[in-house]
Design a protein around this nucleic acid. Structure first.
Lengths: 153, 153
DNA sequence: TGGGATTATATGGGCGTCAATGGGTATATG
DNA sequence: CATATACCCATTGACGCCCATATAATCCCA
C-alpha cells in the first residue's frame, strides 16, 4: 500500500517526540525513509505531511513560473519558507516544530489522518470533530457521494 | 534534501558574524561548501543568497528576457554588478557586507527564509510581515495555492 | 487449531554529538 | 601599524542514536 490511510492517535513524549504510524512509514520511499516534510494546512488548523518526493514536485512546478513575476515570489515564500523538514529516527519518531504544534493546538497527543497522498495531524478532539463535520457535509449531497463510491474507472 | 526550505532566526554577533542555518549549508555543493553569493533582492528589501552554482541559472533567466528591452539591462545590472561572494567559516558563519545589511535593514538578527533554489535574508519583523502579505495575496486565489500543494504528478 | 514463542510497534530514558553562539589570537591587507 | 577577517577553542542546549520495556500482532509447530 502506497497511500496514507486510516487514523491513529499517538502520544507526544517529554522530549516532544511522536511516532509516525508504522503504516505511514511504509508509504515513504525507501530512499528517503527518514525524512518527511510538514506544513500548515491551508484550510484547517491542522498540519499536513508527506515524503520529500512531493516537495521536489512542487519545486519543479514553481520553477516553471515567470522568475521575475510577483506570483513567483508569493508561491516561493508561502511554500518553501513555510515548509519544514523533519527527520524520523530509527524508532520511527519525529519532532513537531513548536510553531506547527501551536497552529494545530496539539499538546500531548497527535491524531494522524490518512489523506491518500499526504496525511494530516490534528489535536485529537478537533480532528474527530472535523471528520464528523466533513462526513455530514458529504451526506447532505448523498448523490455525489454515491457517485464517488460506485463510479467505475 | 537539496532545497532551501523552512525559516530560521539567527543572531549577528559583535564581529558581524551570523550562522548560515545548518540545513542550508547542506544544500551547498560539497565542492564549494564554503562559498556563497549574496545580492540585493530586486523586488523586496531583502538579501538573496545561494551557492555559486546557481549563478549560471540566474544568467540563463536573465538571458531569456528580451535583449533589447530596458528590463534586460536593468536586471542584468542590478543583479550581476551587485553580487558579492562571501566565505563561510569552519563553524558555518559568514559576514554580511555592510551595504547589504543596510539595504535589508538588518541589525542584530537575521531571518533566513528558504525559497527552494535560493534563500532570502530579512530583518526579522519585516520578513514575517512579508510572508503574511504574500500568503494573503495567494489566498485570494485559493485555488491556485491549493493546486500547487496538492496537484498530483 | 490451540497456545507458546517470536516479532513489531509505541513509548521511555541515558548519553554523545552537533548546531548556534561567544570570544581570544594570529594573520593579512592596505 | 590599524582594522578587518580567518582560525582556534569553549559553552550551552537541542537533537540523534542507542538501549530498554510493555503491549499487541504474527508466526509456527505440535
Amino acid at each position: 500500500m502506497d497511500l496514507f490511510v486510516s487514523k491513529y492517535f499517538n502520544k507526544i513524549d517529554k522530549k516532544g517526540r511522536v511516532s509516525l504510524p508504522s503504516s505511514f512509514r511504509n508509504v515513504l520511499p525507501k530512499a528517503n525513509k527518514n525524512e518527511i516534510i510538514l506544513y500548515k494546512s491551508i484550510k484547517t488548523p491542522s498540519i499536513e505531511g508527506c515524503g520529500v518526493g512531493r516537495l521536489k514536485e512542487i519545486a519543479k512546478r514553481i520553477n516553471n513560473l515567470d522568475f521575475f513575476s510577483e506570483d513567483y515570489d508569493d508561491f516561493s515564500t508561502s511554500i518553501f519558507s513555510e515548509i519544514v523538514t523533519t527527520n524520523v529516527d530509527k524508532e520511527g519518531r519525529f519532532l513537531i516544530p513548536e510553531e506547527l504544534k501551536l497552529y494545530a493546538g496539539i499538546k500531548t497527543e497527535a491524531a494522524f489522518f490518512g489523506q491518500g497522498h499526504f496525511f494530516q495531524m490534528w489535536e485529537p478532539k478537533q480532528g474527530l470533530k472535523n471528520t464528523e463535520d466533513s462526513r455530514r457535509r458529504l451526506l447532505k449531497e448523498k448523490k455525489s457521494l454515491r457517485m464517488m463510491l460506485t463510479q467505475q474507472k
